[in-house]
Computed example of a mutant assay.
Amino acid sequence: MTPIATFFRNLEAKCCTVCGQAMTEQAESYMTECFDCQEKIAKDAYLRHYNKR
Rank of each mutant, 00 (worst) to 15 (best):
D44V: 04
F35D: 13
M31I: 10
D36W: 02
T2I: 14
T2V: 12
T32P: 00
A45I: 09
M23P: 05
Q21T: 14
C34L: 00
A22P: 15
R53I: 13
T2R: 09
A5D: 14
I41P: 03
E12G: 10
T24L: 04
A27F: 02
C15F: 04
S29Q: 06
L47A: 07
A45Q: 12
K14S: 02
F8P: 02
I41E: 07
N10G: 08
E33I: 11
T2F: 06
S29C: 07
T2A: 07
G20I: 03
G20S: 04
Q38V: 07
L11I: 07
E39H: 08
A27D: 03
K43A: 09
Y50W: 09
K40T: 13
Q38D: 05
R9G: 04
M31Y: 11
K14P: 01
M23Q: 00
K52S: 13
T17E: 14
E25T: 14
T32K: 09
F35C: 05
Y30T: 15
T17G: 04
A5M: 09
Q26D: 12
Y30W: 06
A42S: 11
I4E: 08
R48C: 02
T32Q: 05
S29F: 03
M1Y: 04
A45T: 10
C34R: 01
A45F: 03
R48A: 15
A22K: 13
A45K: 15
D36E: 12
F35N: 09
R48N: 13
T24K: 05
C16T: 05
M31L: 15
A5I: 05
L11Y: 00
Y50S: 04
M1L: 10
A22S: 14
C37P: 02
C34S: 03
Y50F: 14
L47P: 01
R53C: 06
M23E: 01
A5F: 03
P3A: 11
V18Q: 01
E28F: 10
A42H: 05
D36P: 11
M23D: 05
R48F: 06
A42I: 06
E33K: 14
Y30D: 13
A42T: 08
S29T: 15
E28D: 10
R9T: 07
C15T: 13
Q21C: 05
N51W: 02
H49W: 11
L47E: 13
A13W: 00
I4L: 14
D44R: 08
E12P: 13
Q26S: 10
H49F: 08
H49L: 11
M1R: 11
K14D: 00
R9Q: 15
T6M: 07
Y50L: 08
Q21F: 00
